[in-house]
Simulated scan of single mutants.
Amino acid sequence: MKQQRILFGMAALCALLVNSIMFVQTAQASDPKTIAVLYFENNSVVDKDKLDPLKKGLADMMITEMTKIKGIRVVERQRIQSIIEELNLNETDMVDKSTTQQMGKLLGARVMLFGGFSNLFNDKLRIDVRIVRTETGETLKAEEETGELDEFLTMLQSLVKKIAADLDVKMTSEDEDRLEASKDGNFNGYVIYAQALNFEDKGKKLEKQGKKSEAKSAYESARSMYQKAWDESDGYEPAKQKADEMASLIAKLK
């Protein structure tokens, strides 16, 4: 079984390498500040199971905030998810140095962002991130933010500013305006948004497998949860955009 998994992984890796060549060349030629945000680790001591969806959700939301900075090129989360599925990676693989370095190369990322979060007592959350050079695995910088749960988005924005500085990217006033346009909402809304991402990914995987009825059901669950996330987060705009996107995917499957 182990040998079969290795052979399957090598075949999938070759296919991904071919499909990624153009992306890598474009990313490296256009901007050296290309970064891939990998899924976070859940180190919580309170509500660990409830917050588990944030492993993926926090990465997605960090990507959303980082794309507001013109001087940084951020790899789309869906590309990362595709590689995880194609290579059949699990959580253990995701912290393996050689695996993550290979992922970074396939994604055309000069650096990668690793992170973890901890839900502390007294409704506080700590988020830690490390900027790692893809080629060597060397940690270039480490940053952290600790704050109240309902300051979640402000914490992400603060981390993005630190990351931009660590990458020697000078933010413009327009960058700062875009970054600070989103305001904090109810933390539970962001958790629901993260849960919805799992249903969206499930739907896309099922659709690729030709299971349209099951894919449609997953998309409907995702749309419902994105709408709920929009309501409970007091208007987190990406949730509304995702709900509309799911509606379009559902319509195509009818």
Rank of each mutant, 00 (worst) to 15 (best):
E176Q: 14
R178H: 09
G189S: 01
N186M: 13
S213P: 12
A247E: 13
L7P: 08
K55C: 09
T92F: 11
K162Q: 09
I83C: 05
L197G: 05
D150N: 08
M171I: 01
I163N: 04
Q78N: 12
K50A: 10
D175H: 06
E176C: 11
L87K: 00
D244N: 07
I6K: 09
A243D: 10
T67S: 08
R178E: 10
L140F: 07
G57F: 06
D201N: 15
E200Q: 15
M112S: 03
E138M: 10
K50C: 03
V45F: 05
P238I: 02
T146G: 08
K254Q: 14
R133K: 15
K242G: 08
A194I: 04
L206I: 07
S173I: 12
T172E: 11
G108K: 04
G189T: 05
A15K: 12
G71H: 01
A196T: 04
M246C: 13
E245G: 12
E237R: 00
A164I: 04
V24Y: 08
S221M: 14
V169D: 01
F187G: 08
Q102N: 14
M225S: 06
E65A: 01
N88W: 09
M62K: 03
T67Y: 01
K141Y: 15
K240M: 05
K254E: 14
L17M: 15
G57R: 11
D150M: 02
F199I: 10
R126I: 10
D177H: 11
G104S: 00
P32H: 13
I84V: 11
L125N: 11
E145T: 08
E65K: 00
N88E: 13
D177F: 10
S82M: 14
K33C: 04
Q241N: 14
V160G: 01
L167K: 04
Q78P: 09
K183C: 05
R130W: 06
N42I: 07
F121N: 08
K70M: 03
A251M: 12
F114N: 13
Q209A: 13
I83Y: 15
Q81M: 15
R73Y: 01
Q3M: 10
A11N: 12
S118A: 11
L159H: 00
D128F: 02
E138R: 10
L106I: 02
K208H: 06
I131K: 00
M155V: 02
F152I: 03
I72A: 00
T139I: 07
S182P: 12
K124S: 08
L149N: 06
R5A: 08
L38Y: 08
L159N: 06
M22R: 14
D150L: 03
K240V: 02
N42Y: 04
D31F: 06
I21D: 11
F114I: 07
L179C: 02
A215Q: 09
E180N: 14
L206E: 10
